[in-house]
Design a protein around this nucleic acid. Structure first.
Lengths: 191, 191, 191, 191
DNA sequence: TATGAATGAGGTTTCATTCAT
DNA sequence: CATGAATGAAACCTCATTCAT
C-alpha cells in the first residue's frame, strides 16, 4: 500500500489548483489539504509557495527542451523537423494542459530571480526553435521575408493559447491539433 | 484647466497597474493613490474592484468588435479583408498593450457572471472573424483542409501573445508587425 | 395626487427597516431609497440616523402614555382598569409590531442623552402602571405578597416579547391575545 | 501558572462585550484585545464573528435544556414541577445575565442557517415547558381557558426581560425574584 | 519529520456624514 | 429645498510564514 511521496503529491495538487484558479487565488492551506498533508510538511520540503511554482516551471521547461533537442538533432530534412517540433510541442502542451495554463499565466507571480532564471531557459528554447526556421530560410525552403523571431513568437502565442480553448472532450485529439498547427506553421513559411 | 473626470482617471490607473503587476497583485489602495482620489470615491463609481476590470474588458471588446465589423463589411476581396482585419487587430492590440495584457491574463479574476458576459461577447467576435475564413474557403481562395475554428484560435493566440514579447522600443513598429502577422496568416491559408 | 410629506415617508421607511433587520444593519442609503428621496433630503430633516430612531421612540412613547392615562382616569373599579390597561397595551403593541420590535431591541443604539430621555419617559409610564397595582393592593383586591415593581416588569417583559412570537396570520387576533394576557395578569394577582 | 485556553478567553470576552454594547457595536478588534490575543488567533478557532455568537447561544441552550429536563423528570406534583422549572430558569438567567441579554437581543445577527438551528433548539425547549402546563390542565390543577402556548410565551417574555431591569446590586436576590416569578406564573394558572 | 497554534500585515468593502452646487 | 460626489475611518477577514513541541 504505497502512496506517492509527499513532495510529488504537493506538486501535483499545486499544479491542479494553480491552473484551476490561479496562483494568487490558491492558498497554501488549500494545497496542503488537497495533498493530504499539513502546512508544516509543505514548508519542510519547499521554502515557500513561490518555490512550488518555480518547481512546476522547471519541470515543464526541462521536458520541452529535451523533446525539442531530440527533434532538432534528428537527420530529417528541415521542413520535416520543424513540422515534428511544432506538432510535438502542441501535443505535449495539450497533454499537460494545467502546466501550460500555469506557464503562460503565472510568470508575473514568480519572484524576480526565479523569473529571470525561467526567462533565460525559455530564451534558450526560443533560440533553438528559431534556428530551425533560419536553417530552412538559408536553404531556401522557407520564405525569407519574415524575421525568424517573429515567426517563433507568432507560433508560440498559438501554443500558449491552447490552454484557453482546448477541451479534451472536444472534437479534435491532441495529435490532430498538433498536425493542424504544424501544417499551418509550415504552410505560412512557404516561399 | 480641467482635469479628467474621476471615473476615467480610475480606469486608466487601474489599466496600467493591472497590466503591470496583475489584478490580484494590485490593491485598491494603489489604484486610488495612482488616480489621486480616495477609496470612498472609487466605490462611489464602481461597485467593486472586479467592476473596474469588467469595465476595462467592456471597453476593449466594444472597440475591437466595431473595427472588425467595419473591415468585414467593406467591399474588398475576401483575402484582402482578412489581411486587413488581422493587421488591424494586431496594430490595435499593440497600441493598447496594457489592455491586451489584461485581456488574456485576467479572465479568471472576473466574477462568474461578468466572465460569462465577456465570453459571450468574445464569442461573437470569434464567429465574425471565422466567417471571413469560411467565406474564403467557399470561394476556393483558402485551403479547406483546416477547420476555420482552429485557424481563428491559432491566430488569436499569436495576437494575445503580443503583450508578452512586443516592446515599443524594439525594432519593429506596430504596422510592421501587423503586416507580418497578416502575411503569415494569409500565407498559411494558401491552398 | 398628494403624496405623504417627506419626513413622514422617511420615518415610516426607517421604522419598517429597523424592525426588519435592526438599526445597525440598516444603512442610511437603504432608508432614503425606500422613502424615495436622497441622502441630502434626509439630512435636511433629521440631524442623524440616530435622530430617526429617537423620533420613532418618541412617537410610541407619546401614544402609549396617552392611552394609559385615559384608562387610569376612568371611573371603573381598579381590577377593571388594570385589565383594560393591560389589554390596551397588548393590542396597541401588536397593531404596531414594528415599533414594538424596535422599542425593545434598539435601546442600546440610541445616543446616551437620547437614551436617558427615553428611559425617563419610560419610567413615568412604569410608575403610572404600577400605581394601578398598588391601588388594588391597598384595597385588598390584589395579593400583597408581590412587590408591584416586580409585577410590572413581569408583565412588560411579556408585552415586549410579543414582537418575537406574534404573527398576524396566526390563530389569535390582537384583542384575543390582549384578553388572555390581561386575564393572566389579573389572575396572577388574586389574593 | 496556566492561563485559560484561548478559545475560552475569546468566548468570555465576546460574551461580556456583546452584552454590554451589542453584537454589531462590538468589533473583532475589541474582542481580541479583551482576550489578549491577535485577530489571527481568533480566526484560527472561530470561522467568523458570527460563529462566536453561535457558540454562545449553543452554550446557553444546552445548559437550560439540561436543567429543564431534570426538573420535568422529577417525581413531584405538576404544580411543584412547574414552579421549580420557572424559578430555575429565572435564577439561571440572572446568574448569566450577559448570556440572557445576548440571547434575546442578538437573534437577528445570526446567519440564517445558525438562526434556524437556534430556533429549532429553542422550540424543543418551549415544547418541553409547555408540556408541563398541559399536564396540569389535563389534571385539572391549572385553568384550561388559556392556551398553553400563550402562557409559555407570556412567561418567557418576562424571563428575557430580566436582563433589562435586573441589577445584581438591587434589593432582590436571584432566588427571590425566581420565587416571585414562579408564584406569579403558577398563580395566574389557578382555575 | 511533522504538527498546528499563533502572528501581523495587508486585503476589500461599507458607511455616516459633509459640502459645493 | 435638494442633490450626489467625495471623504476617511473603521469594519471583517485572509494568508504566508514561523516556531515550540
Amino acid at each position: 500500500m504505497t502512496e506517492e511521496p509527499v513532495p510529488a503529491r504537493l506538486l501535483s495538487a499545486a499544479t491542479r489548483l494553480f491552473a484551476e484558479r490561479g496562483f494568487d487565488r490558491t492558498s497554501v492551506q488549500e494545497i496542503v489539504a488537497a495533498a493530504g498533508v499539513t502546512k508544516g510538511a509543505m514548508y519542510h520540503y519547499f521554502g515557500s509557495k513561490d518555490d512550488l511554482l518555480h518547481e512546476i516551471y522547471g519541470r515543464v521547461l526541462r521536458l520541452q527542451t529535451e523533446q525539442l533537442e531530440k527533434v532538432v538533432a534528428s537527420g530529417e530534412p528541415v521542413a520535416a523537423r520543424l513540422h515534428a517540433a511544432a506538432s510535438d510541442v502542441v501535443v505535449s502542451s495539450i497533454d499537460n494542459l494545467d502546466d501550460t495554463t500555469i506557464f503562460f499565466q503565472s510568470m508575473h507571480q514568480l519572484s524576480p530571480e526565479n523569473r529571470k532564471a525561467v526567462r533565460a531557459e525559455r530564451r534558450r528554447y526560443h533560440v533553438l526553435f528559431r534556428s530551425l526556421i533560419e536553417e530552412g530560410q538559408r536553404e531556401g525552403v522557407f520564405r525569407t521575408d519574415k524575421p525568424a523571431d517573429i515567426v517563433v513568437d507568432f507560433f508560440f502565442g498559438s501554443v500558449h493559447h491552447l490552454a484557453v480553448w482546448y477541451r479534451s472532450d472536444g472534437r479534435l485529439s491532441a495529435p490532430e491539433v498538433g498536425a493542424h498547427y504544424a501544417d499551418l506553421l509550415v504552410g505560412s513559411l512557404r516561399p
